[in-house]
Simulated scan of single mutants.
Amino acid sequence: MKHIIIALVFAGILWSCNSSDKTKSTTEETVTKEITVESASNEATKNLKPIDSDEALIATALMAAPEVSRADCKVIGYNMAGEFVTLKEGNNEFIVLADDPKKDGFSAACYHKDLEPFMARGRALKAEGKKHQEIFDIREEEVKSGKLKIPTGATLHIYYGKNTLYDPETSKVDDARLRYVVYMPYATAESTGLPEAPAASNHPWIMNPGTHRAHIMISPLPE
């Protein structure tokens, strides 16, 4: 009986030690993972730089365009000196509008070249000091009269985010994402079968229905 009690005591001690080793191992493994993740995060942050040159404006703006088309896109917008210029010549169907470096956050857009008259008219009216609703109303009348045209199905890609740092190696802007607009002048919920508000994230819906600026809006989930 005495031998059995001694054996049980030793077994208990061994189990306690083994359990302690496992706990220690698990804790050390968790700490190691946390340090690795934090280190990787810090390393990624170190690679980010401000968009402080025309070359950086072009590189980040092109992220709004489909990857296969970026090399031949025309890029326009404000340069670092504050002048609205052609930053890069192009010869395909896309025009890219670079981020305005004087504004908070980041926003670049890529659109079909057939939309340029509509976009340029908006920029001109804004330069005249017209407000959002005034611009909307003026273009509404001009589209109705035939003076201005919006091609049905023309697409606008918007690359946007609240941060203005980017990775020079990939040209990706920190935490930026894409949303898409497909212009469908005077389309409605009834004519398209789409709701006038998104049913859930990543679902298409129709915005400004029944107007010249009616469009299908698609806001993808962030990665």
Rank of each mutant, 00 (worst) to 15 (best):
W205R: 07
H203G: 00
M80R: 04
K162L: 09
S145A: 15
R121D: 15
K149A: 15
M207F: 07
F136M: 12
A71Q: 14
T86H: 02
G105W: 01
L14E: 09
S171C: 10
E140F: 05
S53Y: 05
I51T: 12
S53G: 11
A71M: 11
I158V: 15
P195W: 12
W205M: 07
E38V: 01
I76Q: 08
M184A: 13
K49M: 07
S19H: 05
K74H: 07
S191R: 13
K74A: 15
P168S: 06
L221C: 01
K49D: 00
A109S: 14
H112Y: 06
I158T: 10
E116M: 07
G77R: 01
H3Y: 07
L8S: 09
K126M: 05
E134T: 03
A98G: 14
R177C: 04
N92M: 06
P168F: 04
T86M: 08
A124C: 04
K147Y: 00
A197W: 03
G193M: 09
S39P: 13
E196P: 00
P66C: 09
Y78F: 15
E34S: 01
P204Y: 09
V181M: 13
S69I: 05
S107V: 08
I5R: 13
G210Q: 09
D72V: 00
F10M: 12
A40T: 06
H157M: 03
T26I: 06
